[in-house]
Amino acid sequence: MSNAVSALQGATSDGIAKVTEVGLRGMIILRGDLTSAKLKKAAKAATGVAFPDVRECHCDGDKGLAWMSPDELLVMVPYADVVDATARIAKALAADHALAVNVSDARAVFSIEGAGAREVLAKLAPVDLSRKAFTKGMFRRTRLAQAPVAFWARDEDAFDLMCFRSEAKYVFDLLTISAKAGSQVGFL
């Protein structure tokens, strides 16, 4: 078995927020009928978190469920478990019109933490990131400058963000520039 490494191998930068590439994370795209009890059960069994509503993400450490679109769910599990988890979900939904695919190696995941975390993202994405509008547990697919990304609020001032692995360096550089010390806008 080859030794899997993440795109930037844990790169970090510091400024008004701390940007970290969090390393490998197991990610499964699950497409199907999100109202189906069987699908919900399979997703919950894989992660142990509550099933998310529209534009929500429920996380517990490395595990989580995120609402991607009306027929798409993102299932996050520890990287070491992802092959087994994908097989378990696929087996549970074998009789249904559903698809589970392991996309872990196509992604890069970053965490943005600190007092300026909201500003770092707000400078780059067309999203209202005020505390009132974007609350803990919310999930948003959007773009960061020119790259499609998705991010979610793990906590008030802590966000996780995922992008395509091939764009990891671009996204990391963007976040680093946006988080440069002294670059607060002070609007949020």
Binding site: R55, S69, P70, P126, R140
Partner: peptide, 12 residues
């Protein structure tokens, strides 16, 4: 109408 996001032009 699918996800309820008030999206501006650059997202569309």
């Amino acid at each position: 109408p699918c996800c309820g996001v008030k999206a501006e032009e650059t997202e569309l």
